[in-house]
Amino acid sequence: MTQTAKKKKLRLSYEARNALRGYSFILPWLIGFLLFYVGCLVNLVRYSCSAFNTENLQEITWVGLDNFVTAFTAHGSFNQTLVSSIMDMLIDLPMIIFFSLFVAMLLNRKFKGRGLVRAIFFLPIILSADAVGAAITRATELMNAGVTGASAEMAAAAANGGVSVSYFIELFGELAMPPTVLEYIVGAVNRIASIIQGSGVQIILFIAALQSIPGSLYEVARIEGATGYETFWKVTFPMVMPHIITNTIYTLVDRFSTSQVVKLASDTYRNYYQYGLSSAFSLVSTLITIAILGLIVWLLNRRTFYYN
């Protein structure tokens, strides 16, 4: 039996045997992907159009688009949570990308104590995760409250002509800076802790990207007399552009999976037993996120130069 099987196998061409080997390597993942991902995505669509018997979750009845209608017209907080989650994602995205690129360039240079600084900067990968994240968030809030309290005291002490943030905000407003830009900057300053917490992996990816830029390009730039500013925009930036796309994907997905709307969806089924509604929430928010992601990646891709 084994003999014939072996003979049969030997008769296959080299390519066919290679293909079989390839399949054998990816087989476990393929089963898992079909079973869990494809299966669950199909079920997600099915569940979102169904009503559940809370006594026995296997008894489901088809209700069409009722859950979606409820989600958008009747549910108290879904619309608001969805919009604010997406706005948060979109506001954080450019900040995280630029911050992590900046830090990566900073850490890519050689200086004393670089090892220590790197170890500190990658700590958020450990600390921002959800299980201990709550405690860290609380501690951050306490610290922030302390800082705010201190600055309030300072403002009170230096009331006669002291530094006041709101004064500067007004000043820039009167200098005809668009209020939206101003709000964005003020918002970004307020988010600085969350941006730093959220950019550990991105910094790593950018450092790896910067390491992969051939040194000869910088040499050429220097010989041609380019300034540091020009070198950044003409060499570094185009070369890390593909990795900006990678980081955009990672950041958006990461922000989405920790967003309020995802939390709302899981609360809806865990605490309120509205299974169909929860599935509708998940489906809608995921589709919107993927559409935004696709749009951004498409826009970036058109402007990307691939070195290889």
Binding site: E15, R21, F25, Y37, L41, N43, L44, S282, I290
Partner: peptide
């Protein structure tokens, strides 16, 4: 390292796994 029919599509599925987080399919899971 291996060439096999449908490789591009299947690798696309890996990317789908990165883009659609597990949190999206929490209840079906």
């Amino acid at each position: 390292r291996y060439k096999f029919p449908g490789k591009g599509l299947l690798f696309g599925c890996v990317v789908v796994m990165i883009v659609v987080p597990l949190q999206s399919i929490r209840f079906p899971l």
